[in-house]
Simulated scan of single mutants.
Amino acid sequence: MDKTKIYRYIKSFASSRYKKSSNDEEIWQDFTLNYKANEKNIADTLAPCDKKFIIEIGCGCGDFAKIFLENNDNCLYLAMDVYRGGIINSIKKVKNIDIKSNIVKFHNEDGRIFIDNLDEKIKADSIFILFPDPWPKRKHNERRIINRDYVLHLLSRIKEHGKIVIATDDFEYQEHIFATLSSLSDSIEFCALKEDEILAKFPYYKRTKYHDKAVKAGRSSIFFIANLKL
């Protein structure tokens, strides 16, 4: 991408408040000094080694990051969330686990722009977008992060055998995502998995806070897995 032409994305997230804890400032300083991602430290980490590169757009409170890091090895995990509270809670989770030979970095602004600014030679093995805001009101549909143009763009940022994983519990958004991926059938292959099928692909998966909230509310989730046709 020509880095002088940064996309002007429509804001895909709402305002949020969080309940502060006594050590939040300490954790935020830790983020700034040790966990904050930038283009250089991502490129430098991937350059000399064979680590897999995993991106999570909208990491929430870090549930999936924790699950992934505990059950995988030799990865650079880039977790992105616009909410300060989400980053703080995510760091609290990963600080308390053995992340093996993994490296984890966090980004606290719009992850779409950060990905755009990475060197085009840097490709991800997997990109996870789990339970993004469905923007259910029709007048807000354009704010959805999943749309045809952006899926195509993300597919250009994954490796040959890489994949994009999207999950949602919102029925109308499920239909929207299915239609979006179907419209790209000349370029991609994809499957739509129900909750009881996801463990076949990701045996380590455990429900996140948002997934659990959906289950308690009686909503069924669908996991879409897309990859380029080879």
Rank of each mutant, 00 (worst) to 15 (best):
A79L: 03
L76A: 03
F53P: 01
N89K: 13
I91D: 06
G60S: 11
K66G: 04
N96E: 15
N89S: 13
E70M: 07
F68S: 10
G86Y: 02
F114G: 11
K137Q: 07
Y77Q: 05
G58E: 12
K100T: 10
I97P: 06
C61V: 15
P136V: 11
I115F: 06
N72T: 15
F68Q: 04
I88H: 04
K100P: 03
R143G: 00
L130E: 14
L130F: 14
Y83P: 01
K52F: 11
F64K: 08
D81E: 13
Y77D: 02
F106C: 07
P48T: 05
W135F: 05
I103K: 00
K51L: 07
T45E: 14
I122L: 15
G60R: 11
E109Q: 15
I129H: 01
I91M: 04
F128H: 11
T45H: 10
K92E: 15
K139N: 03
C59R: 00
I57M: 14
K100I: 08
P134C: 07
I103L: 08
A79R: 00
L78H: 05
T45Y: 10
E109P: 03
E70K: 09
N117M: 15
D119N: 15
I145T: 00
C49K: 05
F53M: 01
I87V: 15
V94C: 04
D119F: 10
D81T: 10
R112N: 09
C59F: 05
I88R: 03
C75M: 09
D110H: 05
K93L: 08
N102H: 04
N117A: 07
G111A: 15
K105Q: 04
V82K: 02
S90D: 09
E70S: 14
N141P: 00
G85Q: 04
E120R: 14
E120T: 07
N96C: 09
A124V: 08
K52Q: 13
I87S: 08
Y83T: 13
R112E: 12
H107C: 03
I91N: 06
N71F: 02
I122N: 06
R144G: 02
I146W: 01
N141T: 00
I127W: 07
F53T: 00
I146H: 01
F106Y: 12
D44H: 09
G111T: 13
D133S: 07
I67R: 09
G86D: 13
F131D: 13
S126V: 11
A65C: 15
V94E: 04
K66W: 01
L78P: 04
A47R: 14
I91Y: 02
I97Y: 10
F114L: 09
I97H: 13
D44R: 12
R138C: 00
D133Y: 07
L46T: 00
K51S: 01
R138F: 08
E109Y: 11
K52C: 07
S101K: 02
P132G: 11
P136Q: 06
F131S: 12
P136C: 10
N117F: 09
I87W: 06
L69V: 06
A65E: 09
S126T: 10
N71R: 02
T45A: 11
I145A: 01
C61T: 14
N89L: 05
R143A: 01
H140N: 14
